[in-house]
Simulated scan of single mutants.
Amino acid sequence: MATIHEIMARTFDARTERKSATYTDTPDPEHDRIVRRWNVEPIPPEEIAAAEAAKRRAERDAAMPEPLNILSRHRNQKDFGLPTTLTDEQAVAWAVYLQGLRDYPETGVWPDKPE
């Protein structure tokens, strides 16, 4: 019984192309096998864009806890009349950074983190 030896039709850029669902089988009696050559197809631009947006959302989501916690602490300190660890100007800078993170998936522009 012949085995199936799988290969790609050519090398490809996995960012813009993928293995197709179609292939061609060619007998190779010398090696007692069938060579299955997989085709390559382009990835539709909307799928590439969706994957890039998902990556940006994941990056944003990983960065959001820090400014959320900092701003929450500042609001709590102000609400309870406690001394604040941030000045109001620093709190505004963190709020602007947080908004930049929220906008990042659509804009693609990573905001500058306050110091």
Rank of each mutant, 00 (worst) to 15 (best):
A93Q: 04
T22G: 05
P114Y: 02
M8N: 11
P67L: 04
R18I: 09
V109P: 02
R18A: 04
E30A: 10
R57P: 03
P114G: 09
S72H: 14
A2P: 15
K113T: 06
G108F: 10
P67M: 07
S72F: 05
P45M: 03
L68F: 08
V109S: 03
E115A: 15
H74N: 14
V35S: 07
I48N: 00
A62R: 08
V35Q: 07
Q77P: 09
F12A: 00
H31Y: 13
M1P: 11
V92W: 02
Y23W: 15
K78I: 06
T11R: 11
V109Q: 12
T11S: 02
A54T: 12
P29I: 14
R102N: 11
D28N: 15
R73P: 09
I7K: 15
P65N: 12
E59R: 12
I43P: 11
V40C: 01
A49S: 08
K113A: 10
E30T: 07
V109E: 00
R56V: 02
K19D: 02
A51Q: 05
P45W: 02
E6P: 09
R56Q: 03
P42A: 08
R102P: 03
H74C: 05
G81K: 04
E41L: 11
Q90K: 06
T3G: 15
D79V: 03
R36L: 04
T84V: 04
E6F: 10
K113V: 09
E6Y: 15
A51W: 10
A14P: 12
E66W: 06
A2M: 09
A50W: 11
P67V: 10
T3Y: 07
K78V: 11
I70H: 03
A50P: 14
A9M: 03
E30Y: 10
D112V: 14
T16Q: 01
E89A: 15
E46R: 08
G81I: 08
A63D: 00
F80N: 12
T11Q: 08
T84M: 00
P65F: 13
D61N: 12
A51I: 10
D79I: 12
P27T: 14
E106W: 05
T16D: 00
D13E: 01
T107Q: 02
S20E: 01
R75T: 03
R15G: 04
A62M: 05
P65W: 10
A50G: 03
T24F: 11
P45V: 04
D61R: 10
Y23F: 13
T107H: 09
R36Y: 12
A53M: 06
D32K: 13
E6V: 15
D112K: 12
E30Q: 13
D112H: 08
N69I: 08
